[in-house]
């Protein structure tokens, strides 16, 4: 059995990465999903396709582009130079950026579906009653679309926990900084420590089961209210 110290760091790091990514994606994904659900412009679908791309692209493609984008010759390097670093690769911040790109559709898609399911009526009714756009969103649309928020947040968190290829390509396997659970398991398998790999993998299986069950419960309990 692996020692607690050995697995505590990758578990804590993975939880931190998934939490930060989920919170940031709630902030980034909500306006995108709202716009996609409400706008009538013709280039709406191309934008939606762009957002959905990470569903189809292999993590190696995303990781490869991110490695270049985060590096000293890309925008990430320019940003990093503000605090004297050369690159955003090999850092927790870099992993957060990668995870946001990688998990974007998992937040936007369920939110868009939830917003579209609202229909025009509650929004027009709120406007008729004198609510501004912010008030309409915060007091009418968001509560009605809560299933979308639950689903998006859970999917994003779980998908980030399950991330491997992107982290492998931009992380550099630094303990406490970029060595997340999936990488730690890969490491253990490669070096032949299958006992520890089994323990961590079993934990992931249990986690995945809990997440999927929670998704189904939410769907059953709230799905019909808004859907």
């Amino acid at each position: 059995m692996p020692t607690l110290a050995e697995i505590a760091s990758p578990i804590a790091l993975t939880a931190a990465l998934a939490s930060v990514t989920t919170i940031l994606l709630l902030l980034i994904g909500t306006p995108i999903a709202w716009w996609l659900a409400r706008t009538k412009v013709r280039w709406r679908e191309p934008v939606a396709a762009l957002v959905a791309l990470p569903l189809v692209l292999p993590p190696t493609v995303i990781g490869f582009y991110l490695l270049i984008a985060l590096g000293p010759y890309g925008p990430g390097g320019a940003l990093a130079s503000l605090w004297g670093a050369r690159t955003l690769a090999f850092s927790f911040e870099g992993l957060v950026i990668g995870s946001i790109a990688y998990s974007l559709p998992f937040m936007v898609q369920p939110l868009r579906v939830a917003f579209e399911a609202l229909g025009e009526e509650p929004i027009e009714a709120a406007a008729t009653l004198g609510a501004g756009p912010w008030q309409t969103f915060a007091r009418v649309a968001a509560p009605l679309a809560r299933t979308g928020f639950f689903t998006g947040a859970i999917l994003t968190f779980a998908h980030t926990v399950g991330e491997f290829g992107v982290v492998l390509m931009i992380g550099g396997n630094i303990p406490g900084e970029t060595k997340v659970l999936s990488i730690a398991i890969y490491d253990l398998v490669e070096r032949g420590d299958w006992a520890s790999a089994h323990w961590l993998s079993l934990g992931m299986v249990v986690f995945a089961f809990v997440v999927v069950s929670a998704m189904m419960l939410i769907d059953r309990r709230y799905g019909r209210v808004t859907g």
Partner: peptide
């Protein structure tokens, strides 16, 4: 300052991308 590639090929990729000097 050590970054680890899962293989020697990846270590080289880190240097070629410019992120590791």
């Amino acid at each position: 300052r050590i970054v680890t590639g899962e293989s020697i090929s990846q270590a080289l990729a880190f240097v070629e991308s410019g992120s590791a000097e």
